[in-house]
Design a binder for these strands. Structure first.
Lengths: 239, 239
DNA sequence: GTATTCAGTGCCATTTTCTGGCACCATAAA
DNA sequence: TTTATGGTGCCAGAAAATGGCACTGAATAC
């Protein structure tokens, strides 16, 4: 078993068990107490915050704060956009590749060293390592992470979505709409949805939506987006 | 220098130089001829196809075919969408998360083992490992990879883009447009662009565009997208 | 045909890294 | 005080990586 795998195993075990003694970890990963202690030391060097308590009932555990922090830092919108862009670039399915390197620099400060190496490996695998940064990422707008699962369900199951929307003038309104598409106007994302009350399409900036929730009872059909040209996307999809 | 880093260095050098003798590689990565040969053998085990020619003017090189193949297999639209989706999911910036696992299974068959592990590490880091697949990815439409760099330049530098477009009826036309946005109507991607000739916005399916090229001389300004509601995106961006 | 240049293999001694065991310290709970 | 626990230093043995050497085989140059 390579060192790397054993480190991963230790972190996984700690995540699963919450807390564990070094002896338990040693048995779990099939190594000696001494080696596990060395590994823990190495993990700490890599940026993992690992608490430890001596004495009866003691043991080691990942700092829950730190786990959260890591998640918050590593999985920002910047990070998401970065990988997204890198992947899309690799598949050559999208423009906007040059954001990758700029974003990478940003997240490298926040991520533990070995995650950065993994990320670099991925990027290398995707042949985006050689790109030179041309422009900065800028502000993507802030989207509250807690709200989005509702979007996912609504999209996938074609259920109406209720939310509270704050428009550019600060006015607030409650909506129940049919989510139809996403529009990227870099750096902002928009939800394109049919508003049955207004009997028309509306576009909502994702960062201005709050308190979304699915209306389980209201399944909708796809509609033609109101573009006056030769493309009628939904005609070409399954009904 | 760890083995892994040296392997990466060798691959990078081969990619850059095209072909190199083992002796050159040894000097480039600071190791002995014997060690480089061992590394090459290991890389071959990992799935890299490396050609070698004995005799004067010989050397080793990455199989261009194989590089393409790897790219085609590992960096398909599925892969791109997968990582994209995983990242977006992690950032909770987008729906469509459940595609991740289904896609992962597909690419695992195509990638060398250690890349798969890296990918899993990334996914683990993003906390998407636990997702269960709910639906398949389906056809994303086919977009010719070779064409997209032109898109990138056009978007970033706001230069006009010329291309040939094949509409739904099979009719073919030449366009020169101002790329303004991307629209995602899963599973298809559309370019939203202003067509100066028709003096109006048009939407182009990405997979129906061929031979795009940038018109270096024609820099454009962003325009309001023609949606009849409360969102006027470009007002909110830099001029 | 001969010499040269290169990839590739097998072997081995050396070097480096990893590992486990031990002794020992510090701390907290029983 | 005893016990269970984390933590450190040290060292010898184990394992892995490395480099050197001799050699083979293939392609090219002359």
């Amino acid at each position: 078993m390579t060192i790397r795998l054993r480190h991963d195993a230790i972190v996984r075990t700690l995540r699963r068990n919450g807390t564990a003694t070094v002896e338990e970890l040693a048995q779990a990963v099939g190594a000696s107490r001494r080696t596990v202690l060395r590994d823990i030391s190495a993990l700490r060097d890599q940026g993992f915050v690992i608490h430890s308590e001596p004495g009866r009932g003691g043991g080691v555990q990942l700092d829950p704060q730190s786990v959260q922090t890591t998640a918050r830092l590593s999985v920002t919108e910047v990070f998401a956009l970065l990988i997204s862009v890198a992947a899309m670039r690799a598949a050559r399915t999208l423009p906007f590749s040059d954001l990758a390197d700029a974003g990478l620099a940003k997240i490298e400060k926040a991520l533990p060293a070995d995650k950065v190496r993994d990320l670099r490996t991925i990027l290398d695998c995707l042949h985006v390592g050689q790109l030179s940064p041309k422009q900065d990422i800028g502000d993507m707008g802030t989207i509250d992470p807690a709200l989005l699962p509702a979007f996912e369900v609504a999209f996938l199951q074609r259920l109406n979505l209720r939310f509270c929307y704050h428009d550019a003038k600060g006015a607030q309104s409650h909506r129940e709409v049919e989510p139809q598409a996403m529009l990227i106007l870099p750096p902002l994302w928009y939800l394109v949805a049919w508003d049955p009350v207004r009997d028309d399409f509306r576009h909502f900036r994702m960062d201005r939506i709050t308190s979304p929730e699915v209306n389980e009872g209201a399944r909708f059909r796809r509609r033609h987006v109101p573009f006056e040209n030769d493309v009628c996307p939904f005609n070409e999809l399954s009904p």
